[in-house]
Design a protein around this nucleic acid. Sequence first.
DNA 1: CGCCGAGTTGAACTGAATCAAGAAACGTGG
DNA 2: CCACGTTTCTTGATTCAGTTCAACTCGGCG
Lengths: 188, 188
Amino acid sequence: MNEIRKFIDNISPLNNSDWNFFSSKLKKVKFDKNTTVLESGKIETKLSFISKGIIRLYIPKEETDLTFGFLFENEFVTAYDSLLTQSPSEYQIETLTETILWQISNKDLQEVYKRTNNGNIIGRKMAENMYLIKSKRELSLLSKTAEERYLDLFFDSPKLLQQIPLKYIASYIGVTPQALSRIRKRIT
Amino acid sequence: MNEIRKFIDNISPLNNSDWNFFSSKLKKVKFDKNTTVLESGKIETKLSFISKGIIRLYIPKEETDLTFGFLFENEFVTAYDSLLTQSPSEYQIETLTETILWQISNKDLQEVYKRTNNGNIIGRKMAENMYLIKSKRELSLLSKTAEERYLDLFFDSPKLLQQIPLKYIASYIGVTPQALSRIRKRIT
DNA sequence: CGCCGAGTTGAACTGAATCAAGAAACGTGG
DNA sequence: CCACGTTTCTTGATTCAGTTCAACTCGGCG
């Protein structure tokens, strides 16, 4: 839980009473490897902090599904679109390794926004942060080649990448597994 | 100004005193056609509401620049990344037609967040909204063909499209003007 | 009138998709 | 702990959407 407070304080510091309120709402949950945390079509009701494990966010498709991100230890994960709009999630969330999450329900999160001093600020900063991530991604998709995107990802989390099957990375980068296999070959 | 209040009330209603505070900060500015509103490299200091006109958001590049969006009447426009991080903007903002903006400075906007009841909520909802837009765009770039993206755009704002040079639309869709010209030919 | 940028069209080229088949890694049951 | 089957990864051949380079047309404007 310590890590969670650190993460949040980094966004906007919480006083102890606010933190106590927030943390009292958190529930620890454990998931096996390759387990669905949120099924696409369901409405997202939780915000989760990854205490341990790796998570993939994707849209399941007939043939190959579309991967939108990998989340690691000490990051938050949620089907944010669905959480915000409270409509069925296109996205599905799945563990790639054994995973431990701390979860707060959307209901409780809204309470935090209302009841605590900094709740709304944190909510705003979180949304702003999510925006900045997507904005970067848009730029990457528009202006970079698949190879550059692979190298970026490799640069960001080299070790973690080794734990993720190539086909998922390919899907995140926006190419087929075959294409990524060739890119890899080319650059080594 | 009426339109601005309508827009904001749609996000989260403001009481009169909050609105008065906010609207007192707005300044009306007029721009000619093809005029730079924000130069890339400068820090964004304003949030602008488009009262009249069409605006293009892009990153200037040596050869062809990258277009990230078109904004129309009764929408907000800003180099949001730069506004949030207060670092130099990669993005440049330019009018495509004669344009009238209502602008509020970032400084005043922060005051609105602080001083008014709903300021933070609006700030949050605005960020959430910006996120949702980018999220949609990411999906479009990852899963759709250039042709599909063109049709989407056409479907969203058919009339407005006619006022935007093809080369900018091509850049938004992520192809060369030649390619878009052929797509157009193909689908008519 | 002549020029210039925008748009169209053509031809050659390229990166990635698709189809297909084989090799390697992985896990599950005997 | 090995054997088998399934899934993942690699490699090859073909196809395709889009790029690049280039030439030509059109419309507006000095």
